[in-house]
Nucleic acid binder design. Structure first.
Length: 798
RNA sequence: GCUGGGGUGGCGAAAUGGCAAACGCACCGGCUUUAGGAGCCGGCGCCGAAAGGCUUGCGGGUUCAAGUCCCGCCCCCAGCACCA
């Protein structure tokens, strides 16, 4: 008998798997395909931490299981290698980002391989390689040609630390997602992708997906659709009117003032009319200096200034009402102006109370009411109209339409979603494949000239301009149209562009003629299962869906949703319960653990920690339990694989069903506990049966593949377990002949008895009534009712 | 504030409306060992000597039966945050 020695067996099998190309996804296989994806990692200098192998192991278990279930599985790995942290780190240590990225990737690959994951390594991709970013650039040009990439001056989020623009989604509480610096707003000319053109389809498409409901909801909230109307409030003695957006046109008669955002262009035009211009200008000035964060902090207290002498006309009542500016109205949403209805909007109510503006109720929840009550809070619900002239008594919903007609408002659907800013003023990214020609304007780089290679530079540090702008060899170029002197765009693409299409490339990663072959795309896509961190519920998923829909519209893809099913992996937190981070010093690296316990033990432990979607603090002690379990498997297995043949025990049949179902539902913790219970059972049996051992080994294989494979080969098998079918479960055999019946009196358990599984209701009831403890509990009372639940219990009501 | 997800032993947790706490960690006792951060056997929610009683955040309800379903409240976590 030998000792369980993971170091020996794991290296051996990993080598065999790799050399044998066991996990290669076969383009030509006749088996039905199954495409599994996991977020490809950003290869940081720190290497992987415990969080990575958790998601990876789950995917690997699932992939191995699916192969055993006869699927041709596409499951591979790549590197999201462009990006700021690598660039910043490279500058810090005085190397080129390219070198640093290559080192990081090598280190990640080495670490990941130690885990024994069943990747098809022939499909590995790297977003920072010219073979890849060539197609990122190609995609950008495609978007540009369809009018979906455009340049515009816009207020952008500027990170003063990283010296670059960030997408709205990359700004967290007014701070840079990467470095935490306070974001400034700047007016800059930028490249944008017109994701808003797809808002409606992105919204509609999210519905039917096999995604967690919360994730779908977040996508919907981010897109933020609201249906309402645009209408004009004329300004007294002034040619322009104020256009507002509202979803509550039914409350129009209650609009007692109008509010403009401080940056609204009309404010400037109205200057000659405004009696208190100095005060107004002061407010605008103040508001422009407020960052997003300050605005949020100040949100509790409303501020604003009236534009004295300016009067707007409520188009329904024809009354003149005051006009204010206030920063609770956002310049970037709707028309940048609102009609304020304090009686029916919380914000307007608060504002009106503070500045003594009239509150006029026009919707009653209960109707008719003799006198509408004095409101002490805004009533935001619906109801019937009052104080609204000829619309009195009308239902809110109906009134919206009727009033729209009455004041000639136009129906309008508004979204919170904004276009995607993709320009980055940094070096380590895909160069934007555009040329600025003084004569021809903006000209895309011809497809045959792709990729636009990212040059090596002397200095990668941003100095108030993008690093590439300082390289004449890169920047100076002939215009592809007029051949005159022109300049390349010096900016690079946001790394979210790189990752918005990587899953497509895995289907055909070495193609040099096209982004991918349509046949291969048809073969493998869309992704059947995506395991992704819960932090990516908005950004990456939304961008990917947008790009997929675009390529669908362009005829490259037959489907328009990339990820059919989605699972979120819960974080592994530091031992302190905080998110792992270098600055907190709580990062756990799997290398040492794999070395000490072996990959199988580490894999098992990660899966056993609790529900897959839940976050768990790292608690190293529990790993000993997994080591004990696998040592016992080894000890028992060595003996059992050589045991005489027989039939699978009922417990084995039962476990097969349970474990398979649990893998499919990502309930790995209970799958493992089922295996533990089964081992306890089998160990306790009189003598091992070879078939029991083999079924057990097959079930263990997805979880602890090295150990399972070693035992399999000890049992005299030469093939790889990956090619073995998942054991079959006979449900007739899974049901044992004996069951435990529970006896209850008035719902309380009073006794149990072993019984034949085929026992009938009357027989069971008689058994229960005969039980001494049941009789004692009844204390002579007559049973009123006896309930029998088949094969489970008898409840006597007395 | 809004939205979503949760609250079960010392800890991670389990439980198609049907024996709450499976499985594991930690802990306690025993056996074995030159030794143990090894192995094996047993114990381990709370009260109680026992019989038995009580127990899934709190309060109600539905049901023969509720951790699970319904209503109200408290607390925790995550996301969004003046989007008209």
């Amino acid at each position: 008998m030998s000792k369980y020695d993971p170091a020996r067996i794991e290296a051996k099998w990993q080598k065999k798997w790799l050399e044998g190309g066991i996990f290669r996804a076969d383009d030509g296989s006749r088996k039905p395909k199954y495409y599994q994806l996991e977020t490809f990692p950003y290869p940081s200098a720190a290497g992987i931490h415990m969080g990575h192998p958790k998601g990876y192991t789950a995917e690997d278990i699932h992939a191995r299981y699916m192969r055993m279930r006869g699927r041709e599985v596409l499951y591979t790995m790549g590197w999201d290698a462009f990006g700021l942290p690598t660039e910043n780190y490279a500058i810090k240590i005085g190397k080129s980002p390219k070198e640093v990225a290559a080192e990081n990737i090598d280190n990640f690959r080495r670490q990941v391989r130690l885990l024994g994951l069943s990747y098809d390594w022939d499909r590995e991709i790297n977003t920072s390689s010219p073979e890849y970013y060539r197609w990122t650039q190609w995609l950008f040009i495609k978007l540009y040609k369809k009018g979906l990439a455009y340049r515009a001056k816009a207020r952008v989020n500027w990170c003063p630390q990283d010296q670059t623009v960030l997408a709205n989604e990359q700004v967290i509480e007014g701070k840079c997602e990467r470095c935490g610096a306070l974001i400034e707003e700047r007016e800059m000319e930028q490249w944008f992708l017109r994701i808003t053109a797809y808002a409606e389809r992105l919204l509609a498409g999210a519905k039917g997906l096999g995604w967690p409901a919360a994730t779908v909801k977040r996508q919907e909230d981010w897109i933020g659709k609201s249906e309402g109307a645009l209408l004009g409030f004329p300004i007294a003695d002034f040619p322009e009117s104020i256009e507002v957006f509202t979803t509550r046109l039914d409350t129009l008669f209650g609009a007692t003032y109008v509010v403009l955002a401080p940056e609204h262009p009309l404010v400037g035009q109205l200057k000659p009319k405004i009696a208190n211009w100095k005060e107004v200008a002061g407010y605008i000035e103040e508001a422009s200096h407020k960052t997003e964060l300050m605005r949020q902090e100040a949100a509790k207290e409303k501020t604003g200034v009236e534009l004295k002498e300016v009067r707007a006309v409520n188009p329904a009542t024809k009354e003149e009402i005051p006009v204010w500016i206030a920063d609770y109205v956002l310049g970037s949403y709707g028309t940048g102006a609102i009609m304020a209805v304090p009686a029916h909007d919380e914000r307007d109510f608060e504002f009106a109370k503070k500045f003594g503006l009239p509150v006029k109720q026009v919707v009653c929840g209960r109707y008719p009411e003799p006198v509408c009550p004095v409101l002490d809070a805004a009533y935001v619900g619906t109801g019937r109209l009052v104080g609204s002239g000829k619309f009195d008594g009308m239902d809110s919903e109906e009134a919206k339409k009727a009033i729209a007609e009455f004041v000639r408002g136009t129906m309008k659907t508004q979204y919170k979603l904004r276009d995607w800013s993709v320009s980055r003023q940094r070096y380590w990214g895909a160069p934007i494949p555009m040329i600025h020609c003084p004569k021809c304007g903006i000209v895309p780089v011809p497809e045959k000239d792709l990729p636009v290679l990212l040059p090596e530079l002397e200095n990668y540090r941003p100095r108030g301009m993008p690093p590439l702008a300082g390289s004449p060899e890169f920047i100076d170029v002939k215009c592809p149209e007029c051949a005159g002197a022109a300049r390349r765009d010096p900016e690079t693409l946001d790394t979210f562009v790189d990752s918005s299409w990587y899953y497509l490339r895995y289907a055909d990663p070495r193609n040099e003629e096209a982004i991918f072959d349509k046949e291969k795309a048809r073969r493998w896509l869309p992704v059947d299962l995506y395991v992704i961190g819960a932090e990516h519920t908005v950004l990456h998923l939304l961008y990917s869906r947008f790009i997929t829909k675009f390529l669908h519209d362009e005829g490259y893809l037959a489907f328009d949703e990339p990820f059919t099913n989605l699972r979120h992996v819960g974080l592994i937190l530091g031992a302190d319960g905080q998110k792992m981070s270098k600055s907190k010093g709580n990062v756990v690296n799997p290398d040492g653990l794999v070395k000490e316990f072996g990959a199988d033990v580490v894999r098992l432990y990660l899966m056993f920690m609790g529900p897959f979607e839940d976050a768990h603090p790292w608690e190293p002690k529990g790993i000993l339990g997994m080591e004990r379990f696998l040592s016992r498997v080894w000890k028992w297995g060595e003996r059992a694989v050589a045991a005489p043949s027989g039939e699978n025990a009922p417990a084995v049949h039962k476990a097969i069903k349970k474990v398979g179902g649990d893998i499919e539902r990502f309930k790995f913790n209970t799958a493992i506990s089922t295996l533990m219970i089964l081992l306890n059972d089998l160990e306790a049996g009189d003598r091992p049966v070879r078939e029991d051992a083999e079924s057990f080994i097959k079930m263990l294989y997805p979880f602890a593949p090295h150990l399972a494979q070693e035992l399999w080969s000890l049992g005299g098998h030469e093939n790889c377990l990956d090619r073995e079918p998942w054991p079959s479960s006979d449900s007739a055999l899974a049901n044992a002949e004996k069951i435990t019946l529970v006896f209850q009196v008035n719902g309380k358990v009073r006794g149990t008895a072993e019984a034949d599984a085929a026992i009938g209701g009357d027989e069971a009831k008689a058994l229960a009534l005969g039980d001494p403890k049941v009789r004692a509990a009844l204390a002579g009372k007559e049973p009123q009712k006896v309930i029998y639940v088949e094969k489970k219990l008898v409840n006597i009501v007395a």
